[in-house]
Amino acid sequence: MIERQPCVYILASGRHGTLYIGVTSDLMARVHQHRGGAMAGFTSRYAVHRLVHYEIFDTMPAAIAREKQLKAWRREWKVNLIERANPLWEDRAIELGFPPRA
């Protein structure tokens, strides 16, 4: 994966747990921040650290538009999106080279 690439990502606290949707131009750095607790706030408070879905885009405006779209979706639609490609809600960060979380 290209290091700097606009992307939308979904983190979860666990299977069918709390969800967080974000956008970034550097997925690796952002996942590192979330997993390391460097980002105080929602994800730290609710232990939302598992990368369960991400989509890569050519431009940041396209990624931001998709983020807004996903945030407006009903929870059921978000769960279906995740489960189409990741039915077990596995941590996709491991596929990107991150160690498994305890």
Rank of each mutant, 00 (worst) to 15 (best):
I2R: 09
I2A: 12
E3D: 11
R4T: 04
Q5F: 04
C7H: 00
C7S: 11
Y9S: 05
I10L: 05
I10D: 02
L11D: 08
A12S: 12
S13V: 00
S13D: 04
S13A: 09
G14E: 13
G14L: 07
G14C: 09
H16L: 12
H16K: 04
G17Y: 00
G17K: 08
G17H: 04
T18E: 15
T18R: 04
L19I: 08
Y20P: 02
G22F: 06
G22D: 14
V23S: 08
V23T: 15
V23D: 11
T24I: 11
T24L: 12
T24K: 13
T24Q: 14
S25A: 15
S25F: 15
S25L: 14
L27P: 10
L27Q: 07
M28H: 10
V31S: 00
V31A: 06
V31R: 00
H32E: 15
H32D: 14
Q33W: 07
R35S: 04
G37L: 04
G37A: 01
A38G: 08
A38R: 00
M39D: 15
A40Q: 13
A40E: 11
A40P: 10
G41M: 02
G41D: 12
G41H: 09
G41C: 13
G41N: 13
S44A: 14
R45L: 15
A47M: 01
V52T: 05
V52L: 14
Y54W: 08
F57S: 00
T59W: 05
P61S: 11
A62P: 02
A63P: 11
I64M: 13
I64Y: 10
I64T: 08
A65P: 00
A65N: 03
A65S: 01
A65K: 03
E67D: 14
E67K: 15
Q69D: 15
Q69Y: 06
L70D: 06
K71R: 15
A72N: 06
W73N: 07
W73P: 02
W73E: 11
R74Q: 15
R75Q: 03
E76I: 09
E76T: 11
W77H: 15
L81N: 08
I82R: 06
E83C: 04
R84F: 05
R84S: 13
R84V: 07
A85F: 04
A85G: 12
A85P: 02
N86Y: 05
N86F: 07
N86H: 04
P87R: 03
P87Y: 07
D91H: 05
A93G: 12
E95Q: 10
G97I: 01
G97L: 05
P99E: 01
P99S: 06
P100V: 10
R101V: 14
A102P: 11
A102S: 09
A102N: 12
A102K: 07
